[in-house]
Nucleic acid binder design. Structure first.
Length: 547
RNA sequence: GUCCCUAUCGUCUAGAGGCCUAGGACACAAGAUUCUCAUUCUUGCAACAUGGGUUCGACUCCCAUUAGGGAUACCA
């Protein structure tokens, strides 16, 4: 019994069987196969959605395949429920994998399993073959030994790492290996690199172009002592077997590219094309950094739901970072789906973009302003169900009234208002329509008191009030009041002779605006009066006598 | 320390040696629109990190410097 059988005592599939089982994909010319491969270590990061969006678009607009693979080889870091969260988050953002897992975590596709922990035997089959071929070896170095190695390298000025003459177990005699194995000493399997650090190699990246690297000479760990592969090895096996043509991933992987290329070569596999994208960053003091899971609530995709951004707004914002010509395209193709926009990988920025909420708000306002009243109502309703019970209760008992409120300067308007960036902005826009929420602050009362004859003006208006007045008729009445009470009918007239007027028309209207809404800034007053109805408006107007 | 990536208005960016007096969008400011706000329209503000080359000519190519980021794990 060879030492290899001692390492893998249980029967394993052979490499030939695996190659036969997982056939090369038969795809039309130019079809790209991409994948998103997150680790289930917590919530879904906005950067994960960003990368997934790019991968999904690139695959689907080339009639290719986009799949999801769960990279759970680090059992210590795995978080309960994280896989489900990944699946549902992708589905929420309409990033639908063709293979891997559906929105509910059910496995789909013919290259299964798509969860690395379930592929242990597959990796081991290849590792066994590498052991047989002399391209890998067991290493028994303890943590202490490795620490000492690094220390020694540091003081001698050598480059750190397990390589060449520092690779103590690289050429252990078989008897020594068997001895350790029999004694039950824990071990890992290392790749036996044939590379030389002095060799310069050139690698093509889809975004950064040709990059020069020293060749990899590190004997990296490919199988950990728990029998699971490391990322590097799993990546090579999986993306080969699953037929990935384009690996699009974060640029933190750029420096392991020489290793990955070498591994593909050593296995006799054709390497995929690589594109390394820069992460989304944020400003921290006066330096920028990656959006962090721990410190930035906006790193979690659920944040955007909680605050109430329409998901397409988030996607379109991200698309604008992916290709800056997206917004031009959007302007010229207002009714098309963002999925009709051709994403080009090489137009991505090679440096990381700062996440810009102001821009997100702008895009979101644009999108919400184009919704019909019913669309916005149901979107707000869905949001309230999960995030705002007060608003939900209000909507449940006043749905027609709230629809009417949301229609103001929206339905039939040539240019809809753009004052809602997120659904959590809605309560403030509608609350004053409800008597329970309506109040006039002391500050506002003082505003009214500062206007000459305010009580007489309002009392003069009450008899001629009609909630069905058109905008023009209503405004005509305001003008009449203005001339009766010596207010200028426009700003110019007032500015010409400020001392001969009590104010201008906007001052006069302000009395009514505060009385009716409690605010100085609102949508068109005639429409508000119409929506509020006669009784409510009159009772608010009559309140003037108590100010 | 070593290796790798990156560097244009406040932000996202256009720019493939002369089309650049450096373009657009967001933001900001001013003005216009029969009331405030939001729209809409007009106008304005504002950038090639620094220093060397190469070239008739450099935002663009090369080299250094500086500054950011990443890697250097039995994490991904």
């Amino acid at each position: 019994m060879s030492y290899i059988d001692k390492i893998f005592p249980n029967p394993l599939p052979t490499v030939e069987e695996l190659e036969a089982k997982y056939k090369r994909r038969d795809l039309p010319d130019g079809a790209k196969v991409t994948r998103v491969a997150p680790s289930p270590t917590g919530f879904m990061h906005i950067g994960g959605i960003y990368t997934a969006l790019i991968c999904e678009r690139v695959a689907h607009q080339s009639n290719g395949v986009f799949f999801l693979r769960i990279e759970d080889t680090d059992t210590k870091r795995e978080v309960e429920g994280a896989t489900e969260l990944i699946c549902s988050s992708l589905a929420n953002y309409d990033i639908i994998p063709d293979e891997g897992f559906d929105a509910f975590g059910n496995e789909i596709g013919s290259y299964a399993p798509y969860k690395q922990s379930a592929r242990k035997e597959i990796y081991q089959a290849y590792i066994k073959q590498m052991l047989l071929d002399g391209r890998a070896y067991p290493c028994f170095a303890t943590t202490e030994e490795l620490e000492k190695l690094h220390h020694d390298q540091e003081i001698s000025g050598a480059r750190p790492g397990y390589y060449g003459r520092w690779a103590k177990y690289r050429d252990s005699p078989v008897e020594k290996i068997e001895e350790k194995l029999d004694a039950g000493v824990p071990f890992v399997i290392r790749f036996k690199s044939h590379g030389s650090y002095d060799n310069k190699i050139v690698i093509q990246d889809g975004l950064k172009g040709k990059i020069n690297f020293p060749e990899n000479d590190l004997d990296i760990v490919i199988m950990k002592s728990d029998g699971l592969p490391t990322y590097h090895f799993a990546h090579v096996i999986d993306d080969y077997l699953m037929g990935t043509t384009h690996v699009i991933r974060g640029d933190e992987w750029l420096s392991s590219l020489p290793l990955h290329i070498q591994l593909f070569k050593a296995m006799g596999f054709k390497a995929p094309k690589y594109t390394h994208i820069a992460p989304i960053q944020k400003m921290d003091g006066d330096s920028r950094r990656k959006l962090s899971k721990r410190h930035d609530p906006e790193a979690d995709v659920r944040y955007y739901d909680t605050v109430g951004y329409p998901r397409v707004a988030v996607i379109e914002y991200l698309l604008n970072l992916v290709n800056s010509n997206f917004e031009d395209w959007r302007r010229n193709n207002q009714t098309k789906s963002y999925k009709d926009f051709p994403v080009s990988l090489n137009k991505l920025s090679p440096s990381g973009a700062l996440f810009d909420f102001v821009k997100l708000n702008n895009i979101s306002k644009e999108i919400i302003s184009k919704m019909t009243t019913d669309e916005i109502y149901s979107a707000v309703y869905d949001w309230a169900k999960k995030n705002d019970s007060n608003l939900l209760a209000l909507m449940d008992s006043n749905s027609d009234y709230i629809k009417a409120i949301l229609s103001i300067e929206r339905t039939g308007a040539k240019n809809a208002r753009k004052d809602i960036a997120k659904y959590s902005d809605v309560p403030a826009e509608i609350e004053y329509f409800f008597d329970e929420k309506f109040a006039i602050s002391d500050e506002m009362k003082n505003e009214i008191r500062s206007i000459k004859n305010y009580r007489e003006i309002v009392n003069a208006y009450i008899p001629m009030f009609n909630e069905n007045d058109s905008k023009d008729i209503w405004f005509g009445k305001m003008i009449d009041l203005a001339s009766k009470f010596n207010f200028a009918k426009n700003g110019k007239e007032y500015k010409a002779n400020p001392e001969s007027f009590n104010g201008d028309i906007s001052t006069l209207v302000k009395i009514f605006r505060i009385l009716i809404t409690g605010k100085t800034q609102t949508p068109d007053l005639s429409e508000i009066q119409h929506v509020m109805g006669k009784d409510r408006v009159l009772s608010r107007l009559n309140f003037v006598n108590e100010i």
